[in-house]
Design a protein around this nucleic acid. Structure first.
Lengths: 190, 190
DNA sequence: AAATAAATAGACCGATTTGTCTATTTCAAA
DNA sequence: TTTGAAATAGACAAATCGGTCTATTTATTT
């Protein structure tokens, strides 16, 4: 782990790496401390417990994710271009992360019944993503609101399905397939 | 847990319930033994270790899942009807399981890097599902093979995306949305 | 330079983890 | 009814878990 920055940040960075790579329950705090080169007391002064660290992790990951997406999208592009470029972003991420999939989906599988606050952050994040797609699609399909929502939610489902299937098959074909059908749906004129 | 059947089956049944409800890593063998009313030695004679029990769990779940699906589909129905009814099956399952989502996706999130054999079973299961959709769609779209595959894979992605989003929002609207768009895709004539 | 805060190493705690082993009991087949 | 397998309860082990605490050292600030 990078030895720059302060202990507090180093803990979060290392936790982020390990929670993603090994899972939340499978990652012990001792491993985090070792790899972050940080004393145990530092974890408990900056974060109160492992669960609180987990919550801080999700919150930071939420911000990081949308920051990365927005900086990947080109400012002066149409809503249609942005929508399709979301799938390019996804493809790049899947490769970059060695097909570990979505941090939030992975975490939800572990803590859905275990930790209500982590669950809430995850749900809020995905609700934000849903609204993000809805906004872009509403720019393209302006006349029929019901149709716009049907298409934007379908794009969301294709997006999420592509994440899961990409993780399963260790390949980007699901992302390419999703992008292609998303294009088809968006070009279906009323 | 049902006290019928033999210890071996009771272990698997209880493990299946707990792994699904709490996750694999969050479930200790002691809890399984208590709820199954079974001695510890019985677990280690019938299954060799917790991981081996986990593998047995996935294998049994694979068989159960497709058995449930096939018995839900009506024998004398068209491929189109069967395809759409898959989403009714999904909706029923999501409700029935209190939106715990997909056993295989949930498990993959935990053991993807941890246990290669469990991963393989999960991947094989999803590959079977993919082929299942491909077969049905190929009955409907016979002329254009590339188009048939594009549509069947898109249905797979909608299906998987609906599972994930349904678990997130504790609602069946993603399944309904997926079914509707799947219908649209299947009705797009060449 | 003195005072204060931040970070350190690491012992320690009780609980829990998977897994082994012994000794006893239940049960079914010969 | 005897024999042998199957199942039982539970002690035990070694490791790890999250978390607390003490004592010391490093930085920062005044």
């Amino acid at each position: 782990m990078a030895s720059n920055s302060n202990p507090k940040d180093r803990i979060l960075q290392t936790a982020s790496k390990l929670f993603y790579a090994q899972g939340y329950n499978a990652t012990g705090i001792n491993q985090i401390l070792e790899e972050a080169n940080v004393a145990k007391a530092s974890l408990y002064t900056h974060y109160g417990s492992k669960d609180d660290l987990g919550i801080a992790y999700v919150k930071a990951a939420r911000e990081d994710w949308f920051n990365a997406l927005n900086s990947f999208l080109e400012k002066n592009s149409t809503s249609m271009e942005k929508l399709l470029r979301c799938f390019d972003f996804l493809e790049r991420n899947m490769r970059l992360n060695d097909y570990k999939g979505c941090r939030f989906i992975n975490l939800l599988a572990e803590v859905s019944t275990q930790n209500a606050e982590m669950r809430k952050e995850i749900v809020d994040h995905k609700s934000t993503l849903r609204a993000f797609f809805q906004n872009l699609v509403s720019d393209i399909i302006e006349d029929d609101k019901a149709k716009a929502n049907q298409i934007s939610d379908s794009i969301l489902l294709l997006f999420e399905g592509a994440i899961v299937q990409s993780k399963i098959h260790l390949d980007v074909w699901p992302v390419k397939t999703a992008k292609k059908t998303a294009t088809t749906l968006l070009n279906t004129k009323t």
